[in-house]
């Protein structure tokens, strides 16, 4: 691990202020650390080389509170474990609870925070291997995955037209997939003040700058994640397909939340994990189900086809296209069985 300086401020203003000091020439030279489970791993691998760590664990961001609109505010420093087992989350947002518990190990969930979960680096094996080319780790160096062992890589929203920007990495977060389905809102504080970012706009596709996983400006700190009132607590599921039963990243995952009126579908959210640089949603695919009755499995396949439209495989990961379609069909079947 490269040497760094360490500070541990006790208020948000000091934390954000300490970040801005050395922005100019090295934008990633200062990093916030909370649970540290991904950052320290990346530092040991020499992938991340911050020269200053700002430990935010003493900031007053460790509670889950009710919002006036009926939603919940998840403090950035509440651990993933405490969130998943929180009575209000289990009662009103069981999709989020189930999704968090499908990720990582119990030890990691005890360390990892809600804010930090959003910052798990979008990745593939070549991002972690400092002897390989990777446009995400070293912009312009090329992509080892595109013609390499790309089994875990993405099939949607990938960029492959220019060797200097090619990136087919996937975001590994389970929690973010549920947050996408729930349409959560990320609250941040930065040098320019406070702002909110819809989760759909928080993570980004690689575009021509795959080194950026999210749309935060330098020095911005996530303080909370707001959950809207609708938690889809009656009809939901998180289906995660992976190489072993527990403690593995998703090859493909599907978060589904549905609101029913009698037997008619009123609202539906479907988010995919393991397939793209960010959680993947497509409103047109969801719209196919609106107004339909729940017992029409023939529509599930159309929804799956619409969600996966434009999907592209790169050899070892081509199986993910069919796997994702079948996962969508299976997940919808699970959710609508709950209704019967």
């Amino acid at each position: 691990m490269h040497p760094f300086t360490y500070i541990c401020p006790s208020d948000v203003a000091t934390a954000v202020g300490s970040f801005t000091e050395d922005l100019a020439d090295q934008p990633l030279s200062t990093q916030f650390i909370a649970g540290g489970t991904n950052l320290l791993d990346l530092m040991k691998q020499n992938v991340a080389r911050p020269t200053k760590l700002v430990d935010i664990n003493r900031l007053p961001l460790a509670s889950i509170t009710e919002l006036p609109n009926g939603g919940l505010r998840l403090g950035a420093l509440v651990t993933n474990a405490d969130t998943a087992y929180h009575p209000l989350i289990q009662e009103r947002y069981p999709l989020l609870s189930q999704t968090i518990l499908a990720g990582a190990s119990a030890q990691l969930r005890n360390m990892a925070t809600n804010g930090g979960n959003l910052f798990q680096r979008t990745r593939c094996y070549y991002f972690y291997d400092t002897s390989a080319a990777c446009n995400k780790r070293e912009p312009g160096s090329g992509c080892g995955a595109i013609k390499g062992y790309n089994r875990v890589c993405g099939i949607l929203g990938t960029i492959d037209h220019d060797p200097k920007t090619t990136c087919i990495a996937t975001n590994p977060s389970d929690m973010s997939v549920a947050l996408a389905a729930l349409e959560a809102v990320v609250c941040v504080t930065g040098p320019q003040g406070e702002r909110t970012i819809p989760i759909a706009d928080f993570h980004r596709l690689p575009g021509d700058s795959p080194q950026y996983d999210n749309t935060l400006q330098a020095g911005e700190l996530v303080t909370a994640i707001d959950l809207p009132p609708q938690g889809f607590a009656n009809h939901y599921t998180y289906l995660k397909l992976r190489d072993r039963t527990s403690y593995a990243f998703a090859l493909v995952s599907v978060a589904v939340g549905v609101m029913m009126d009698n037997n008619q579908i009123q609202e539906v959210r479907i988010a995919l994990g393991g397939v793209a640089h960010k959680p993947w949603r497509k409103r047109e695919a969801e719209a196919l189900l609106i107004g339909q009755s729940a017992d029409q499995p023939t529509i599930y396949q159309s929804v799956a086809e619409a969600l996966l439209e434009g999907a592209k495989g790169y050899g070892y990961n081509t199986f993910k296209i069919e796997l994702a379609k079948r996962a969508v069909v299976r997940a919808l079947g699970i959710v609508f069985q709950q209704n019967q």
Binding site: Y6, C8, I33, G36, L40, D41, A106, Q107, N110
Partner: peptide
């Protein structure tokens, strides 16, 4: 009382 991976955290924390 909570289990964690001691390899992924700094002593100073």
């Amino acid at each position: 009382g909570k289990r964690i991976n001691t390899c992924l955290t700094l002593a100073i924390m």
